[in-house]
C-alpha cells in the first residue's frame, strides 16, 4: 500500500440545505483522507454518510451547498474546478456505484451500449476496442457468457448481475477512487458476498481507493481497512476494521449490539439509547 500521499484529502466538509424552517446541516465539518485503501463509512439513515459521498463528486443539488476548507483529489481542488473539468473527473477519476441497479442503469439502452458510452466519454477509443474492453470487463466481474449479456437490456438481468454490470461499467475508465453507496443492500444475502468479493478483488488489483458507504457495520468490518462511524453529520469514531471489537464509543457499541445474531442469540435485543451529547461532540478527524 502506498501511504505517502493520499488520493483524496478532505478537511472540514459541510453540506447544508436551506429549508423553510431554517438551515439543515446534513454534514457538519468532517475531515478524512483516503489513500489506496478501503475506507468504510457507517451510520444510520440521516447520518450524512451518503451526502458525504455525493459531496465529493459535487452531486448536491441546489438548495444544498457544499463547503470545505479543503477537498482535493491529488492536490487538485475539487471545490473550485469548473463544471467542465468536474465532468471529466466524475467517472474518469472518481466513480460511484449506487444502491439499486434497477434505478442506476438506463432502462432503454442495452448493457453494452451504456458501457461503451461510459468508456468513450472519458477515453478516445474506437468502437470496436470499446466493445472488446467492455466484454473483457464483464468477464472480470464473473459474468458468464459476457457477449450475450452485452446485448441484453437492464430489465433482462437479475439484481446481482445488474450490480456487477454497474461495477464493470464504473471501473471501465480506470478511475482511481470508487465510491460505493450501499452497493449490496438491494441484493439477496447469498449474492451480496459474491458481488462484494468481486468489487473487493478489482479494487485491490488496481490499487484504487474505495469508499464503502453502508449501514451494516459487520459487513463493512469485513471488507474495509479503516472504518469511520458517522452520527448526525459528524464522525464519532474512527478505527481499524480489525480493531472494531475494541470500539469504545457508545453509539458504535449500540449499533453492534442491536444486530440480531444467528450464532449468539439473545433474549432481547439491545436498544440504542441516544445521548444528546453525541450530536454536540466535535467531529473526530479521520486524516492520516
Amino acid at each position: 500500500m502506498n501511504d505517502d500521499k493520499p488520493l483524496l484529502d478532505i478537511e472540514n466538509l459541510q453540506v447544508r440545505f436551506a429549508t423553510r424552517t431554517g438551515t439543515f446541516e446534513a454534514v457538519r465539518g468532517i475531515s478524512f483522507t483516503l489513500g489506496r485503501e478501503r475506507l468504510g463509512i457507517v451510520g444510520e439513515s440521516g447520518s450524512g454518510k451518503s451526502m458525504t459521498g455525493r459531496a465529493i463528486l459535487r452531486l448536491i443539488r441546489s438548495p444544498g451547498t457544499i463547503e470545505a476548507d479543503r477537498m482535493a483529489l491529488h492536490g487538485e481542488d475539487l471545490l473550485s474546478v469548473p463544471e467542465k473539468r468536474m465532468r471529466q473527473l466524475r467517472g474518469g477519476k472518481i466513480s460511484m456505484i449506487m444502491q439499486d441497479p434497477k434505478f442506476s442503469l438506463n432502462p432503454v439502452m442495452s448493457v453494452g451500449q451504456q458501457m461503451v458510452e461510459a468508456l468513450r466519454t472519458h477515453e478516445s477509443v474506437s468502437k470496436a476496442e470499446a466493445r472488446a474492453r467492455a466484454i473483457a470487463m464483464l468477464e472480470e466481474v464473473s459474468i458468464r457468457d459476457p457477449e450475450r449479456v452485452y446485448d441484453l437490456f437492464p430489465h433482462e438481468v437479475s439484481g446481482g448481475m445488474g450490480q456487477r454490470i454497474m461495477i464493470a461499467m464504473m471501473l471501465l475508465p480506470n478511475p482511481e477512487v470508487l465510491i460505493a453507496d450501499e452497493p449490496t443492500s438491494a441484493l439477496d444475502v447469498s449474492v451480496q458476498l459474491q458481488v462484494l468479493d468481486i468489487m473487493d478483488r478489482l479494487v485491490r488489483e488496481r490499487g484504487m481507493g474505495l469508499i464503502f458507504i453502508s449501514h451494516d457495520l459487520n459487513l463493512v468490518a469485513k471488507f474495509c481497512d479503516r472504518i469511520v462511524i458517522m452520527y448526525a453529520g459528524r464522525i464519532v469514531e474512527v478505527c481499524k476494521a480489525s480493531e472494531l471489537r475494541n470500539a469504545s464509543h457508545p453509539y458504535t457499541l449500540g449499533l453492534l449490539n442491536s444486530v440480531p445474531d444467528l450464532e449468539h442469540p439473545r433474549e432481547r435485543l439491545e436498544v440504542l439509547q441516544r445521548d444528546p451529547a453525541w450530536r454536540e461532540a466535535p467531529s473526530v478527524s479521520a486524516r492520516t
Partner: peptide
Amino acid sequence: RHLLESSIHSVR
C-alpha cells in the same frame, strides 16, 4: 448451508 454461511459475519 450456503445461505447460512453467507449470513454469518458478525464481529462479536
